[in-house]
Write a protein that binds this DNA or RNA. Structure first.
Lengths: 150, 150
DNA sequence: CCCCTTCTTTTGATTGATTCAAATGATGGC
DNA sequence: GCCATCATTTGAATCAATCAAAAGAAGGGG
């Protein structure tokens, strides 16, 4: 089913349907918060001749046409998701950068209006929860801190 | 006054008091959301022999010891601020990356608890408001879009 | 069904913030 | 004032991401 959907999605956005684009959309379906690198690896399995630059191009195109959303968590490489249009938020792991969706926050609406805007034309509110994923939490417990400073 | 304060601040954090560190702290007082580059320029005016690496080192040290906070807005270079301990938020300009503080959000507390945590140990909630600062808003109005796609 | 214009992809170089590493220099407790 | 320890300088390296030019496909018009 997926290949057909990906092609339809691209056509509806008036983007030319090319193999790299189809492959990237399908990679995103399998990696809902994939980095460019991860998606490149996934695409390479299906279409080994694809260049990483093509993956960057496609991701940029998808984002520009509203088919994908780019997430830029701190100093981790950017990640992409197909889930657009519902402004949900994310939990990001400080250890490995892995991301999970947060569908809603308690009392969501009221907190997304800044009380002071300093002359800014505010367009969007972004909420990021930082923490440690299960794997990184276990890794820290296994490896005690080198030695606390003071 | 500032130089004395900076020295006291460093000493209280059990950081050695050095000229580059004092200069960076003072630069931060004058540039409350400065990037490493901006702070380096400011420091250079006072202490021209300081290397950019030293500025990076100092900023890292300040952040590690809780004297400064690092802000990493999307694909803009990181910025630093001395204001720590009160978890306030920021408005970031999509155009130039300039940052302003947002002291509080309406109904703040309730929105900082994710409803689902996916096994994450959530430590911190970060809220970023994206928009355009006055200067960038004016610039966009002056320069109409190149020509809509489609 | 084929051509031609336009848009994509490939390739390889480049940018830019940030970090690493080794050698030199300064800080401050004793 | 000495000296071990920590900072700074210098120069190279990393890594994600972007730029640019040439070669290659997509798909609408004939």
């Amino acid at each position: 089913m997926s290949s057909t959907d990906a092609r339809a999605l691209l056509r509806e956005a008036s983007l030319r349907v090319t193999e790299p684009r189809v492959a990237v959309v399908e990679a995103l379906e399998g990696h809902p918060h994939g980095s460019a690198d991860e998606l490149y690896s996934a695409v390479a399995r299906v279409l080994p001749t694809t260049s990483k630059q093509a993956v960057y191009n496609v991701l940029h195109d998808l984002a520009d046409h509203g088919l994908a959303r780019r997430i830029e968590p701190g100093d981790h490489p950017a990640r992409y998701e197909l889930r657009v249009g519902d402004n949900h938020h994310h939990v990001v792991c400080r250890g490995c950068g892995v991301i999970a969706d947060v569908d809603c926050v308690v009392g969501h609406a009221p907190c997304l209006t800044p009380s002071v805007d300093h002359g800014f034309a505010v367009v969007e509110a972004e909420v990021v929860f930082w923490g440690l994923c299960q794997a990184c939490t276990r890794a820290r417990e296994a490896t005690p801190e080198p030695s606390p400073a003071i």
